[in-house]
Each structure stands twice: as structure tokens, then as C-alpha cells.
Amino acid sequence: MEAWVVWMVIAAVLGVAELMSLTLSLGLLAVAALAAGVVGALGLPVAAQVGVFAAASVAGLVVVRPVATRHIRQPPMLRSGTAALVGREALTLTEVTRLAGRVRIGGEEWTARPFDPDIVIPEGAMVDVLAIEGATALVYPRE
């Protein structure tokens, strides 16, 4: 069997292994094996094929993988749904206690309770939304 065919088989095996592990490492090694297979198909000697594999592997693992993992781990740029309400300012429409209360957050009325269950927030006070639990805003009075 010719060397370039062996490189292609190695690339296929590494590609399938990457699909199972999702680490990005094996996929980059598969690309390096593919590059070595192309060099072998062009008729270059095995030493050149190994050199291309080594260079492509190092380039992939040292340069490409850190950039790719950084992009994958970034949080979404836009918060949506209830997550977008956390940190916003609200106005209490009724007295807010641990049992009941209503606030207006950006034009919408929400049920509310104080984040600290021991405090009572009077009607008309400005509060910060610290969390959303279900359909209830957990709020804390502004200083």
C-alpha cells in the first residue's frame, strides 16, 4: 500500500475519533494527516510527508486550537429572555415583601420579592433586578 493511502486512512480514523470526542485536537491532527497524504500523492518522499504532518500538527495545535477554543467559550454577545432583565432598574408598584409585590421592569409588570427576605420595599421605590426566578423578579432597593 502506498504511503499517501496510509495517510488518508489515518486522517479518516482521526476525523471519526474527533467526532466522538469533540476536543478539536484530533480533528487538527486529521487535517495534518490529510496534508501529508496530499504531499505523498504528489510523489514526495516519506520524510517530506512526515515533515508536513509534523509542521501542520504543530501549527494546528499551537495556533489554531487556542483561537478556536477561545471563540467557542465566549458567552453570547446578546442576552435575551429573562437574562436580559437581570441588572435593570425597576419601579415598585406595590409594597414588596417576602410574600407579595409587583414591579415595573421596562414597561412590563412582574411579580416581585426582595432579594433579602427580611426587608420590605415601599411602593414607588427604585430597585435593581438581581435575579429572575420563574415569573418573579428578585429585587433590591437602590441607595
Rank of each mutant, 00 (worst) to 15 (best):
35 A>H: 00
123 E>R: 15
125 A>H: 05
71 H>M: 13
8 M>C: 09
130 L>Q: 10
13 V>E: 02
47 A>G: 04
142 R>M: 11
38 V>D: 04
39 V>E: 09
7 W>N: 03
11 A>N: 04
83 A>F: 05
57 S>C: 10
53 F>R: 00
17 A>G: 04
99 L>G: 00
127 V>M: 11
77 M>C: 00
43 G>C: 13
36 A>V: 01
143 E>H: 02
48 A>E: 07
119 I>K: 06
73 R>Q: 14
107 G>I: 06
114 P>F: 07
14 L>R: 05
103 V>L: 11
70 R>H: 12
30 A>W: 02
106 G>F: 06
50 V>S: 01
104 R>I: 06
3 A>W: 14
42 L>C: 15
102 R>L: 15
23 T>W: 05
132 I>E: 12
1 M>I: 05
26 L>Q: 09
28 L>H: 00
60 G>K: 09
65 R>M: 08
101 G>A: 08
9 V>Q: 04
7 W>Q: 01
21 S>F: 13
5 V>M: 13
133 E>M: 01
10 I>V: 15
19 L>S: 12
9 V>S: 04
96 V>F: 11
134 G>N: 10
24 L>G: 07
41 A>H: 08
73 R>E: 14
139 V>Q: 05
38 V>A: 15
6 V>D: 01
29 L>P: 04
4 W>I: 11
36 A>Y: 03
53 F>W: 02
39 V>C: 13
45 P>N: 08
77 M>N: 03
129 V>Q: 10
28 L>W: 09
28 L>C: 09
137 A>Y: 14
70 R>I: 08
130 L>K: 12
111 T>S: 14
140 Y>R: 14
141 P>T: 07
138 L>W: 07
136 T>N: 11
108 E>H: 14
112 A>Y: 06
24 L>D: 04
65 R>Y: 03
102 R>G: 10
6 V>R: 03
100 A>L: 07
89 E>P: 00
109 E>H: 09
108 E>N: 14
10 I>R: 07
18 E>I: 01
87 G>P: 14
57 S>V: 03
143 E>L: 02
122 P>G: 08
70 R>M: 12
133 E>L: 03
75 P>R: 14
118 D>S: 12
39 V>R: 09
31 V>F: 13
42 L>T: 14
47 A>H: 03
55 A>C: 12
20 M>R: 13
69 T>L: 15
99 L>S: 08
19 L>G: 15
80 S>K: 14
3 A>E: 12
79 R>L: 15
94 T>V: 05
90 A>M: 11
18 E>T: 02
12 A>I: 11
56 A>C: 14
44 L>N: 10
140 Y>S: 14
131 A>K: 12
120 V>Y: 08
49 Q>H: 08
32 A>D: 05
102 R>A: 13
33 A>W: 04
41 A>C: 06
43 G>D: 11
51 G>S: 10
84 A>Q: 12
2 E>Y: 02
11 A>K: 06
40 G>V: 10
55 A>I: 13
84 A>I: 11
14 L>A: 08
62 V>A: 15
143 E>Q: 05
106 G>K: 02
47 A>E: 10
93 L>V: 06
11 A>I: 04
109 E>S: 15
106 G>V: 00
36 A>N: 05
95 E>D: 06
59 A>F: 13
102 R>D: 14
97 T>Q: 01
38 V>T: 12
57 S>H: 08
139 V>F: 03
25 S>N: 08
31 V>H: 03
114 P>L: 10
59 A>K: 01
28 L>T: 06
140 Y>A: 13
81 G>R: 10
7 W>Y: 01
